[in-house]
Amino acid sequence: MSLEKCKKQLETILAGCEGKRESLLPCLHAACEQCGHVSEEVISYLAEKLDLPRVEVYSAASFYSMFSLEEMGKNVIRVCVSLSCYLKGSNKVIKALENELSITAGQTTPDKKFTIEPVSCLGLCDKAPAMMVNEEVYGDLTAAKIKDIINQYRQKEAK
């Protein structure tokens, strides 16, 4: 299933790189963006196309924090927990998100809509505490702001 969803993109990337190993990370990015994770099927497919042992593909897929072997939510909330944001209260951000979504950090909601991912510095230290939802940046967060942001995404999902 998951391979179907991203196969076209993977083929384009692979063709652009003449099947070289350098295309592995771009392929893994595409798989995560299209299917929310890197599945067993995708690992086998890439191993074959790139002429690599499966373990090499698996090791890259499991090494980087932006790749996930388990299905992520449609909206990935990356909360910075590094020192600059921690000094400004990233703990409270995590708590507010956990309360709002009724999951703990690192988990995905049962409806697969949201994942809370504590991450290292996002380079938004002047807007600490900060987080990203997918590609959007949110700074100077408070519990109230977080409620609003989550509600915006819920409304988007409902449409």
């Binding site: 290292s120 510095c121 380079g123």
Partner: peptide, 11 residues
């Protein structure tokens, strides 16, 4: 690959 916590100049 700006990643040192507290660094946001290259961005």
């Amino acid at each position: 690959d700006e990643g040192e916590p507290g660094t946001f100049k290259d961005r």
